[in-house]
Design a protein around this nucleic acid. Structure first.
Length: 322
DNA sequence: GCCCTATGTTAAA
DNA sequence: TTAACCTAGGGCT
């Protein structure tokens, strides 16, 4: 269920709590047991997110690739080093995003008995992480991991990831600038070559990596773009503005640990911002748009629910006559 | 208990 | 275009 922002938070969290440490890797459920042996007892040397995929690099040059899919989630626990570690993944209740781990309360006595279907468990001297319900959990060579990554489109969070690494003493400012500029140009170029509707394209991980159903709907609303508009009919400035808006709201998501796309002046309902005041269109079908009199529309497209405002995101006309 | 839902992807038809 | 897959929680009976 998580979109790219959650996976980037995960990558940071693994770096923070497990980076450089030797990990015991197991599979209480059993399904991951043979592959777990390949990295059991190895040092975690890198933690990287690309779109919705997480890549953990180990000292023997093998890579653990995890994709949470719809239901996957990681939970963490441990001593005071884990006090900031949140569980990240599928929300267990409507209205819940991430919840803090029960770390740092009393002495750490090792990981608890596995609860439910724990596909993979990583344990260090200071704490543990449990993975449940992933679409993918496999051990790859670096070459195989590179092949997977080569199939993914540009990631709007590449600059945010660069900033995190810079703060950890890795990479350079110039690198971040170059990478984010290249990612944006890549996105614009890919859109120009596609005739598929922009609403479909934003969900295509080979075109753009990390955007899911919420960010798709919200970004198109914020940019007043009709989701059915063919990609190649978007002007280059519009495509650039769309990229920049996606970057902006996803970076907010990494910071906040939840998706909030509304601007303060557009929140009306009383109570906390999230979740009831967090979105413009997602799960707001039949409700009145926050900006106009129209009702939010819902249509199932390619098996996913597409939300949009017919008033604020009108059908584009190719030649606008004045 | 049973049914539904979910920020996702893949393979078969 | 449809079904399958992975899992847990909430609402219902």
């Amino acid at each position: 269920m998580p979109e790219g922002h959650s996976v980037h938070r995960l990558a940071r969290q693994f770096d923070d709590v497990f980076g450089g440490q030797v990990l015991a890797v197991s599979s209480p459920q059993g399904r991951f047991a043979p592959a777990a042996k390949l990295i059991d007892g190895q040092q975690l040397v890198s933690s990287h997110a690309h779109g919705k995929q997480l890549f953990l690099g180990f000292g023997n040059d093998l890579v653990l690739r995890v994709h949470l899919g719809l239901y996957g989630a990681w939970s963490f626990g441990g001593d005071e080093h884990f006090s900031g570690a949140s569980s990240i993944g599928a929300p267990r209740r409507v209205g819940e995003s991430e919840h803090a781990s029960a770390a740092g309360q009393g002495p750490y006595e090792g990981p608890p008995e596995p609860v439910g279907q724990v596909r993979a468990r990583l344990v260090s001297a200071h704490g543990w992480a449990d993975l449940r319900g992933p679409t993918a959990c496999e051990v790859l060579t670096e070459a195989q991991a590179a092949t997977v990554r080569a199939k993914l489109g540009p990631d709007p969070l590449i600059a945010a990831a660069g900033e995190f690494n810079l703060a950890k003493g890795r990479g350079s400012r110039a690198e971040i600038t170059d990478d984010s500029r290249a990612a944006k140009q890549d996105f614009i170029a890919r859109l120009a070559k596609k005739k598929t509707p922009i609403g479909t394209a934003l969900m295509d991980q080979a075109l753009l990596a990390g955007v899911g159903n919420i960010y798709r709907a919200e970004a198109l609303f914020r940019c007043s773009i009709d989701p059915f508009m063919p990609c190649n009919e978007l002007s280059k400035p519009s495509a650039a503005a769309l990229w920049e808006d996606i970057v902006s709201i996803m970076e907010d998501g990494v910071r906040d640990g939840k998706i909030i796309t509304t601007r303060p002046q557009h929140r009306s309902a009383p109570g906390p911002v999230w979740p009831d005041n967090a979105y413009y269109t997602y799960q707001r079908q039949h409700q009145q748009c926050r900006l106009c009199d129209a009702g939010i529309a819902l249509m199932e497209v390619a098996g996913r629910k597409l939300y949009w405002c017919p008033g604020c995101q009108p059908k584009a006309r190719k030649r606008v006559k004045r």
